[in-house]
């Protein structure tokens, strides 16, 4: 026998609901952004390639350094774990973070999925904040983890020649993590302002490496010094604690922290303005 009764109707009229508090909306947006980032293979490819690059870099540097120390044990006294791993972060890890942040910020403009995101969370500032925070968290883990990995690999190869100061290494690990987090905030802001993935990665590459290299090639001391005010160069001064191993800035200390934070703040303001003013 066929039941003639229609399926139970769901109540279409909802009782009035109180507006959720801003922290609650932010917590939801954080969960949403984390779910989205974590459910994409590209995220894990970025992190995997970054880690593999750092491990290979540390192994390469470690082996050649170990050869040198085998011939000249005295040189091992000047060995710096922080300097080599910081270079690994500068040349490799920060580009993984750039790609990750650029994809997090611009991916939804390429697919137009930004429309569903803004329907779920109409407060655009909250979306940007959540997206930046999730990318920053992942970038911190990536920066710290990959730096620790690099130091570990180096220590495995040259540990018998040069002892590791664990406290100093921890500073490098945390410094790299923090700087990668701030760079992620910068590139999420830049990506939100630019909306294009390729453009964002290109601009990020110029800021991190291209422009400082060209400024240093100019041979003019003023331009050479100006390169230190770019985010990548200022960041390495921070996480390498001044022991960069190549010429960057005429200055050490808090000015570099302020520089990196300033870039991030400027990019966020640009991104927020674009997000608010422009149609999605």
């Amino acid at each position: 026998m066929i039941a003639a009764s229609p399926p139970p109707a769901r109540t279409a009229a909802h009782a009035p609901v109180p507006a959720p508090s801003t922290p609650r909306v932010l917590a939801r947006a954080l969960a949403m952004e984390w779910t989205k980032l974590a459910s994409l293979r590209s995220t894990w490819w970025c992190l995997g390639l970054g880690a593999a690059g750092m491990a290979a870099f540390a192994l390469l540097m470690g082996v050649s350094t170990a050869d040198r120390f085998a011939e000249d044990p005295v040189a091992a006294g000047e060995f710096s774990y922080a300097r080599l791993t910081s270079q690994g972060v500068f040349y490799l890890v920060q580009f993984a973070v750039l790609t990750l942040a650029a994809l997090a910020a611009t991916g939804e403009y390429a697919t137009r999925a930004i429309t569903t995101t803004l329907q779920a969370v109409p407060r655009r500032g909250v979306v940007l904040a959540a997206r930046s925070a999730v990318a920053a968290g992942l970038a911190f883990a990536a920066g710290a983890g990959m730096t620790a990995l690099g130091i570990g690999v180096l220590w495995g190869v040259v540990g018998s020649y040069a002892p590791l100061d664990a406290g100093y290494a921890l500073g490098t690990v945390l410094g790299a993590g923090a700087c990668m987090a701030v760079l992620a905030v910068l590139f999420v802001g830049l990506g939100t302002a630019m909306r294009g993935t390729a453009g964002t990665i290109g601009a990020g590459f110029l800021l991190l490496l291209g422009i400082p290299l060209v400024l240093q090639l100019s041979g003019l001391q003023e331009l050479n010094d100006a390169a230190a005010y770019l985010p990548g160069a200022a960041a390495i001064e921070v996480y390498a604690a001044g022991d960069v191993g190549f010429y960057t800035a005429p200055h050490d200390g808090p000015i570099n922290i302020v520089t990196v934070l300033g870039w991030a703040a400027a990019a966020q303001i640009a991104g927020y303005t674009e997000l608010r003013v422009r149609d999605a």
Binding site: M32, T35, S42, T111
Partner: peptide
């Protein structure tokens, strides 16, 4: 078609569910 092709249907909806409470 405004969805990320790399995500599963479940993950796509889960993200939306989390974002909208």
């Amino acid at each position: 078609s405004a969805v990320h092709p790399g995500r599963s249907a479940r993950a796509h909806l889960l993200a939306l569910a989390r974002g909208s409470g």
